[in-house]
Simulated assay, not measured.
Amino acid sequence: MADNNNISPANNDTELARLIGESLPDLSKLDQTQDPLLPHLFSYKETVTSQTVSINSEALWDSISGEMNNPAEKARVLQLSPAVKRYLMAAAVLIIALVGSFMYQSYLSPVLIGESFASAEVIELQDGSTVTLRPYSKLFEIDNTNASAMYKLEGEGYFEVTPNPDRIFSVQTVMAEVQVLGTKFVLSDWGSTSSVYLQEGRIRYTALSSNQAIELEPGESSSVTENVQSPQIQSVNEDVFTDWLNNELVFRNESVEQVFSELEQHYNIQIQTAPEVAGEFLSGTIGLDSLSTVLRDLELVLGGTFTQTGPNSYVFNPGE
């Protein structure tokens, strides 16, 4: 390594570098007369220093603040073309509609308020009305205000509605709706059929798919199926609709298919049979004490046997 203390006096540039290094950081300690190059260096330093711009921080901030608060600039930044405004308004309306639809659907979402299993259950509503649910049926509340009470039924139920002329009481099934003021009626929704029977009062029965409606008087019934969307008034025996309330099954010239469908609802089972058996017609009364007793009685009437094929499924085979 070179020895900086043994620099040749004849090397002027090296000697000048050594002097500058020893005087740092205060170059004023240098004697400008020691080297002819030093005056030129100091002169250049003063020239550069004199060109340095002095920054006034307060003036600089006032300038920035003025630009930020300039109304003209604000208007320029926020100004939108008519096309963009239309797009933004349409988007806002769409968002509001979607949110409103979601809130409305959430508000009207059915809430389960009653359910029956192996036996009938009596549900008392807030207005004092009662609903007797047939086994394996469900009742949902859709809306309940001073002006209306709306419910949804799955299965079958016997309704005793407290009279209130200022309030609309309605019950929906998958295919139909019943509107009442004060009445007693039976509404069912099983076997691909929605049926209603009016015991007292007055109801309006509407097929939801066709929006066709009829008004029923006491002792009348009507029904809607997947293929029949125009409800018709029928006069029937009351016990055909209220039989299960007495724990029995009454059928008057009913098809075997209809009888099996009613048993499927009442016991939460499935029954399969040949088409020629399903098309036969029966009349009579069967007690609904137990499923085994009912199946045994039907075996005697139909002349065949029931075979259990699963936890809740049966097949009826006619005798030879």
Rank of each mutant, 00 (worst) to 15 (best):
L94A: 14
M103Q: 15
G100I: 08
E141T: 11
N144M: 10
A59K: 12
L112Y: 06
E73H: 12
E67A: 06
Q79R: 08
I142Y: 06
F102I: 14
S63W: 03
T132K: 13
T173A: 11
S137R: 02
G114P: 06
L108I: 07
V77R: 15
T145Q: 00
G128W: 00
S65L: 01
W61N: 04
F169V: 03
L78S: 11
L78Y: 15
V161T: 03
T130R: 10
F169M: 03
S63P: 00
L139V: 03
A83I: 10
N69D: 11
Y107F: 14
S137H: 06
S63T: 08
L108E: 04
S129L: 01
Y158W: 09
K152V: 01
G114T: 04
P110G: 03
L80T: 12
V111A: 11
R76K: 11
K152H: 11
L60Y: 11
V174W: 00
A72P: 02
V122R: 07
T132L: 04
G128I: 03
A72Y: 09
K138Q: 13
E156L: 00
F117C: 00
F159R: 05
S109T: 12
P82W: 00
S81C: 02
M150S: 15
E160Q: 12
P163E: 08
L80C: 08
S137G: 07
I96F: 13
S109D: 02
S106Y: 14
L78P: 01
A72V: 09
N164W: 04
R76N: 14
P82G: 01
A149Q: 12
Y87R: 10
L94S: 15
E67C: 02
E67D: 08
N164Y: 08
L80M: 12
V122G: 01
I113Q: 10
Q126F: 04
I95G: 14
V99L: 15
E58T: 15
M175T: 11
E121K: 09
L98H: 10
M68T: 11
A97F: 05
A149I: 06
K85W: 10
P71L: 01
Q126H: 10
S63D: 12
N146E: 13
Q172T: 07
A120M: 02
S148T: 14
Y107V: 04
N164H: 08
S170G: 06
R134H: 02
N69T: 13
V99C: 14
D127S: 12
T145E: 00
V122L: 08
V161A: 01
I95A: 15
M103P: 01
G66F: 00
T145D: 04
L125W: 08
Q105I: 11
A90F: 10
L125D: 08
L108N: 13
I142S: 06
I123C: 00
D62I: 02
A120E: 03
T132R: 10
F140A: 05
G114I: 05
Q126C: 01
P110K: 03
A120Q: 05
L139I: 11
S148Y: 06
S65R: 07
F159D: 05
M68A: 14
A90T: 04
G100Y: 07
L88T: 14
L80I: 07
M150R: 14
A92F: 09
A83R: 11
V171D: 02
L133C: 09
G100T: 07
V99G: 13
E67V: 07
L78F: 14
Y107N: 06
V122A: 08
A72C: 00
D127H: 13
T162N: 04
E124L: 05
A72F: 06
R76S: 09
Q126W: 01
S119N: 06
S170N: 06
